[in-house]
Amino acid sequence: MTLTLHEEAVIRFVDVCVSFAGRMQENIVLDQANFTVPKGKTTVIAGGSGQGKSVILKLILGLLRPNSGQVLVGEKNIATMGYAQLQEQRMRFGVLFQGSALFDSLTVFENIALPLRERTSMRNEEIVAKVQTTLKQLELGGHEDKYPAQLSGGMKKRVGLARALQLDPEIVLFDEPTTGLDPVMTREIYELFTQTQQRLGYTAVIVSHDIPQIFSLADQIILLNKGELDVFTNPSQIPLSSKTKIREFARLVLGYEETKG
């Protein structure tokens, strides 16, 4: 296995295998997955439901360990890391969860302030000031005293994004940021994403099945289907994939014709 060592790669998967014990047979989610995530760029991971997109994010965060293979963040292998080291690594990430994962017993303000309160030594006035600025940037002013259950889907995502960005992460992971939103809100979230990325310069990994719209944001596209995975830098390469299941996916979902001589 020869790997091109991109200098600017922040995340690298090397021969990662993940499977879960199923009732009848093993459910193989990732079979020898290899890819890198370039620094400062946007990587989109797309694939049907249940193909392992969230699993990839959980591997990156060390919430799940692979059966075999390495998940490298920077130079370190998340897959074999101890708890303390893992905590340190996680400080580099911001995560927007699929269901926003806001703390439902805390207000919007307290949700966004939580990482600052728990992970920094900032004084209360500084925290209030910083959270107020974020609230304004994400057009959440006036909602700070509401609880997550009182918010619309789009607002929840914005609060989740605000919370994810509080500690100025190097890498931000988005798990289906627009699923369940109407087209207007979807566009709003994408605009917000582009704005914040330009302002903060983070590396983004976006999981989505918002195909093909999501491709316009991507510097790199990773497609997943039935355990196979392929990497593209341009959507036009997708039908030319060497992997049969990826071509099958492209044909079914993207409507691309299989162009094979």
């Binding site: 959980k58 965060l61 919430l63 905590q87 340190e88 996680r90 400080m91 990430f93 995560v95 969860f97 699929q98 269901g99 994962a101 806001l102 703390f103 439902d104 939580l114 990482p115 728990e118 992970r119 500690l167």
Partner: peptide, 11 residues
């Protein structure tokens, strides 16, 4: 996923 979210904030 609130517990996962805490873990991800290293809390």
């Amino acid at each position: 996923e609130q517990i996962d979210a805490l873990e991800c904030m290293a809390i």
